[in-house]
Nucleic acid binder design. Structure first.
Lengths: 109, 109
DNA sequence: ATCTTATATCGCAAATATACGATTAATAAA
DNA sequence: TTTATTAATCGTATATTTGCGATATAAGAT
């Protein structure tokens, strides 16, 4: 893999892929599910619910945060995460926009 | 990474993550975009449009096909791909379902 | 000041993904 | 039958992800 080929695609494609990558692990889906159901900040609870070590969960949280899908704030000795709904809506919008062309009738297959 | 931890999550989480993984590369987003715009089967055209070798494109097509997002049929010496809109709609549905809880008001962050 | 609790980060090992050239397979064209 | 053409697969190198234990950090409790 000589060079990073990802750079040679459009920004929209890259952003969408980036976002999808953050969703591309069941642990991260599970984290988002927990956050969505609570709709308020939790932290160690996620660790206790998932079948993963604390350090691994922390890493997954970091990835979701880097992708902008969740927001994290520090609250004393503990951290507080919640879903960034705006980012999700944006993802949905971009995603639909990209594929909502001509999907009326199938010409083949 | 001792064991495959992905197995220890629910089927829905796994399926969603699997689908997201297929979307987690700009090349595959670009392929889907081309297919969506044409709405008819093309094949070598994809290779000529993307900045990647033929074998690499073929690999990406295979992944999209395995994830069920596209359908491929053989047509003589050439292959013919198109988007599986049903799979996309299912993905959208599952995705929304998972996160459309309580997103009315934000309690934190 | 020391201890406890909650999280993040580091370093490493194993697993996967990405990319390509070379080769194969399968059909059409000569 | 030989020769192109099109696309899939194989082998391989490199990059990235996943996961954990150990350690660091930061604040509250004693």
């Amino acid at each position: 893999m000589a060079i990073n080929k990802k750079q040679s695609f459009g920004k929209k494609e890259q952003d969408l892929a980036e976002c999808a990558k953050a969703l591309a692990h069941p642990a991260r889906i599970a984290i988002l599910k927990v956050l969505a159901q609570h709709n308020e900040c939790i932290c160690g609870e996620i660790v206790s619910v998932l079948p993963l070590a604390q350090s691994t969960v922390s890493q997954h949280l970091k990835e979701l945060k880097n992708a902008g899908l969740i927001i994290g704030t520090v609250d004393g000795p503990r951290s507080c995460y919640c879903i960034n709904w705006k980012a999700f809506e944006k993802f949905n919008r971009e995603f639909s926009f990209l594929f909502n062309h001509l999907k009326t009738e199938q010409a083949c297959c």
